[in-house]
């Protein structure tokens, strides 16, 4: 991990592989959180209302 990493250069953008991975990972994680089903036990819902 102490060896220099690769940098990507597009126009004025210059970004390292680890930084790119972090940002891409965040976008992916957010997308997964949006679509992944959230576990809810049927028993949690006893039909009670406030």
């Amino acid at each position: 991990m102490d060896t220099p990493t690769t940098y990507f250069h597009w126009g004025f953008i210059l970004i390292s592989t680890p930084n790119l991975l972090v940002i891409a990972g965040m976008v992916v994680l957010f997308a997964i959180a949006l679509v992944a089903p959230f576990p809810h036990a049927e028993a949690d819902d006893d039909g009670r209302r406030n």
Binding site: F30, I32, A33, L34, A36, F38, H40, D45, N50
Partner: peptide, 10 residues
Amino acid sequence: PYFVGSWVYV
């Protein structure tokens, strides 16, 4: 509330 059911809340 029953609409709290998404990983985004986590």
